[in-house]
Amino acid sequence: MNDSIEFQLAQNGYYVSTTVGVSMRPMLRNRRDRVIIKPVGEGRLSKWDLPLYRRPDGKYVLHRIIGVEDGYYIIRGDNTYAKEKVPDEWILGVVTEFYRGERHVMADNKSYRRYAAFWQTVYPLRKPFHMARVFASRVKHKLFPKKKEP
């Protein structure tokens, strides 16, 4: 039986799932929150939308659009620090609503869109803190390496 995300989207017109990983924190938490994804339909997606796409290596990714270009999007997770160029043909669907715990949010909700825009706008401020944390973690592991089990 074909139970791939693509098949379920085509058959049901939607796909519902929890999210896995930390790349979309603080908005979406690992294995706690849920997203409802629907096919894109006519037209292109907009800045701050959350598309579900599949990379050529087969991995499914749910990150945010930060730039719209001809034939592709510039995409980055809310908790990641690298941009990705995603062609239109990789896109499977887009988040139309989500549940953060019990709180239901529509993707076109104005407050939510303002949060998404704000979070990405302050990226230049967030990145130095993130780099400092990564550096501090590396120094810590150099000074206090984890002891291997005998």
């Binding site: 017109g13 939607y14 519902v16 929890t18 294995r31 706690r32 849920r34 409802i36 239901h104």
Partner: peptide, 14 residues
């Protein structure tokens, strides 16, 4: 959760 006219159940956690 309700999606359109249907209800959909999915797991979280373990």
């Amino acid at each position: 959760q309700k999606v359109g006219a249907s209800y959909v159940a999915v797991p979280v956690g373990e």
